[in-house]
Design a protein around this nucleic acid. Structure first.
Length: 488
RNA sequence: AGGGGCGUAGCGCAGUUGGUAGCGCACUUGGUUUGGGACCAAGGGGUCGCAGGUUCGAAUCCUGUCGCCCCUACCA
């Protein structure tokens, strides 16, 4: 039946790879760990990018672009930052090739060695703060609310398309503020933007929280995150927003004169989401028949398939409906390809995750109806041609909402409160998902739990209530539950 | 880093005792089809990872080498 998609129960990670491939999202690249994003995958990313970009602009941000290459020396200026990223940096050491004198091909010209080696950005804090030093003199220059859309490179050991790749596309916001309060407010605001995007565009419910010191971004004072739960019970960090304190200002000597004519260090934030979100989108909604896309992000929202093949009457009816839908701002495709049979098309469009399919055949036309199939539930309805556009518009909203509700119900059913370590291990092994448990607040306990169970603290949820309890491992007193899970 | 495995058409694979390259999918052309992944026929496509060696003859045997995958470990 299905075009060789491994089922989720059989092998979840193979299922994931099959979806990526069969839905035309990405291909492997000749370079290990990199991926080639194909039209379907890129169109999805463009829709995500456009929605996020509008949200950034609406909150006062503007876009900039900083270079791919960063002088190696920059990275070492902030101690925690270099510690976190040094192990996965690609380094440019030469600037020229030459013909191999001993045979075919080219070799690196040893005489073209760079005096200062360059790193390919794993993130841009260093080059940006080196630049902000020159851009910021006075409190009147603040805040600086800049974002950039870029690619970055982190030399990862184990990679998977979208979820963890050596090169990935993302946006990184880098803002500068006169006060800590303002920077913290910015950090929280962008976290809210990410949560809003995840839930209302991707239909992917998320938990907002703070990372523990162990899981904090290299160089941050506080890292906030949104955490989502995938269908296999593993957690995915879907976005992060960092309060950087004055760490980068200190490292790069970025000071401003305040109203009292006194020099102060600037306060910073950075925040980012990446093509990893596409991985999250796949693993939140898709099924054994292929991709399932939320209507708001789907590159094509409605496909019209003539059955059994286009005839003048059917083509006319299809065009009429597609025009009406387009007039309502809906993205429609009419498939008049006569070389493929309807059954093939049905399966194909399900694979591609198109939210709504309209089938029009002679039988439907005679009855004044069309067949409408929704991808999320696979239901088929016979709908009056009269008013079908309005029906589809509502249906798309309904699908968007249903996907969110379904994912949220799943997450709730997979979030377990646990009060002792036996239960903790048992739930993790037998059920998976999020575990809410007490923790004594130490990095040692966190490490020990990770060592024993492979689960990490995903975050301390922002909405957690104060509650007396005992650490699930050590029994020490704890004031609130934190969120554990095995994670991607 | 330790252990195991694999390199043959775009993809997935077969190839026995060494005898000169094959299957399925995909692709091209023509025809019949078309309400849930059509069928028939005819085609195109190869430096058998690479380099040596043994041999009259190597995808096959030997040596070396390169690349990739899996498990364990490591990392986020």
């Amino acid at each position: 039946m299905a075009k060789e998609i491994t089922s989720r129960t059989e092998d979840y990670s193979q299922w994931y790879l099959d979806i990526v491939k069969k839905a035309g999202l990405a291909d492997n690249s000749p370079v290990r760990g990199c991926m080639i994003i194909k039209p379907n995958g890129y169109a999805l990313w463009e829709n995500m990018r456009d929605a996020l970009d509008r949200m950034f602009k609406d909150t006062g941000h503007v876009n900039v672009y900083f270079p791919l290459l960063i002088p190696k020396s920059f990275l070492s200026k902030e101690a925690a930052h270099v510690e976190g990223f040094a192990k996965e940096c690609a380094v440019v050491t030469h600037y020229r090739l030459k013909n191999d004198p001993d045979g075919h091909g080219v070799i690196v010209d040893p005489e073209a060695k760079l005096e200062e080696e360059l790193i390919i950005r794993p993130t841009s804090e260093t080059i940006i703060w080196d630049t902000y030093r020159n851009w910021i003199n006075s409190y009147r220059d603040l805040p600086l609310l800049y974002n950039q859309w870029a690619n970055v490179m982190r030399w990862e050991m184990r990679t998977r398309p979208f979820l963890r790749t050596a090169e990935f596309l993302w946006q990184e916001g880098h803002t500068a503020h006169a006060t800590a309060e303002e920077a913290i407010a910015e950090t929280r605001q962008m976290l809210d933007v990410y949560a809003d995007f995840a839930e209302n565009w991707m239909a992917m419910p998320v938990v907002k929280g703070v990372k523990t010191p162990n899981e904090r971004f290299a160089g941050a004072e506080d890292t906030y995150c949104i955490e989502a739960l995938m269908q296999d019970g593993k957690a995915l960090q879907a976005g992060t927003s960092h309060f950087l304190g004055q760490n980068f200002a200190r490292a790069f000597d970025v000071k401003f004169l305040n109203k009292d004519n006194k020099e102060e260090l600037v306060w910073a934030t950075s925040w980012g989401v990446s093509t990893r979100l596409i991985g999250g989108l796949i693993m939140t909604h898709s099924d054994d028949d292929g991709l399932v896309l939320p209507p708001k992000l789907a590159p094509t929202q409605v496909v019209i398939v003539p059955i059994p093949k286009p005839s003048p009457e059917i083509t006319e009816a299809a065009d009429k409906i597609s025009k009406l839908l387009r007039g309502m701002g809906i993205r429609v495709k009419v498939d008049n390809d006569e070389t493929k049979r309807p059954g093939f098309k049905f399966a194909e469009y399900e694979m591609l995750g198109i939210p709504v399919r309209i089938g029009i055949g002679a039988r439907d036309l005679a009855a004044g109806k069309v067949e409408v199939a929704r991808r999320d539930t696979k239901e088929k309805m016979s709908v009056d041609t009269e008013g079908v556009a309005e029906y589809i518009k509502n249906l798309l909203d309904d699908i968007q909402q249903n996907l969110f509700n379904r994912a949220k119900a799943y997450r709730e059913s997979m979030t377990t409160k646990v009060d002792n370590f036996d239960d903790f291990q048992k739930v993790l092994e037998e059920k998976g998902g999020f575990i809410l448990a007490h923790w004594d607040g130490t990095g040692e306990t966190e490490d020990k739990i990770k060592e024993l169970t492979k689960a990490t603290i995903r975050c301390i949820p922002l909405d957690s209530v104060e509650e007396d309890g005992k650490c699930v491992l050590t029994g020490a007193l704890s004031k609130r539950r934190v969120l554990f899970a095995r994670a991607y």
